[in-house]
Amino acid sequence: MRPFDYETPQDAAQAVALSEAAAQSHVGSPVQYIGGGTTLLDLMKLGVMRPERVVAIDGIGGDSLNAVKKTDQGLHIGALVSMAELADNGMIERDYPVLRDALWKAASPQIRNMARLGGNVLQRTRCPYFRDTTYDQCNKRVPGSGCAALDGFNRLHAVLGTSGSCIATYAGDWAQALVALDASVSVLGPDGPRVLPFSGLHRLPSDAPHIETTLKPGELITGFTIPDGPWPRSTYVKVRDRESYAFANASAAVALEMEGDIATDVRIALGGLATVPWRASKAEAQLRGRPLGEAAMEAAAEAEFADAVTHEHNAFKVPLGKATLVRALTEAKAMEI
């Protein structure tokens, strides 16, 4: 990999001060934060990312960055909490099973021990044409170069939220839980702190897939807040070819509030199917306030995938996505709480 400067700031403000730099794209930014490094190191070795400065944030400390606590605003989760730490938290297991399920199904223990949640939600796509610099075409890596996945191998690519420029799947799991639970994300940037809805963090690829989020240059994710809850009737179903350590062919984060057979509140987000963590608003709207039976679930799934766009090898993701949605709702409904 290319030589780079390695900075070890003492606090978040110093980190942000070290990271102001103009950037054309998130992949191409000359400054990168590093937490656990589980995505960044890979991409640097592959030559996909070539930062000149790497700012290590694992030592910037502070209560807020490392804490998991219930506050007046809701559940606060610091950005430097590791995947393993949150998954092992007894309160999370009891009150927010969807958060725990999405984490422990996400990676190997080694990765869960290293990866921090702030970086986890920014995990980059596994699109093979993005990760291999010998392919000339990748609009995410080299803006304007084209998309090899459109006529290449695309079994694992997205069917929701795609564009003619990019069909790369958002690869993470935990973000689906956050977007389903209406989380917000706190960031600190050169202009100070701000809070934005988590659903506004990731950008659809449209004609600029190299700009992956709404974060501005230098902005650092400091934490997440989940407003309501607890959500004891919640789960994350991850469907994959292998039982463990594999990316989702389809996944669904579901949280329900039930009164008898009626779903008084329904939250659904889909993974492995879309270019961003995908809130299934259409399906939710059909189900909210109605009896939650299998036929209703199937109709809701149908509505959610009405606009799906498939390519040569990924047409199966439409029936699979629907089935995954139905299964996750069924399993959440059946939970004993």
Binding site: R126, P128, G152, F153, L156, D241, R242, E243, S244, Y245, A246, F247
Partner: peptide, 15 residues
């Protein structure tokens, strides 16, 4: 395409 052991799947313990 899947020239790595994250995506070339071989059985793991859980399988």
């Amino acid at each position: 395409i899947n020239d790595n052991i994250a995506e070339y799947l071989v059985a793991v313990n859980a399988d």
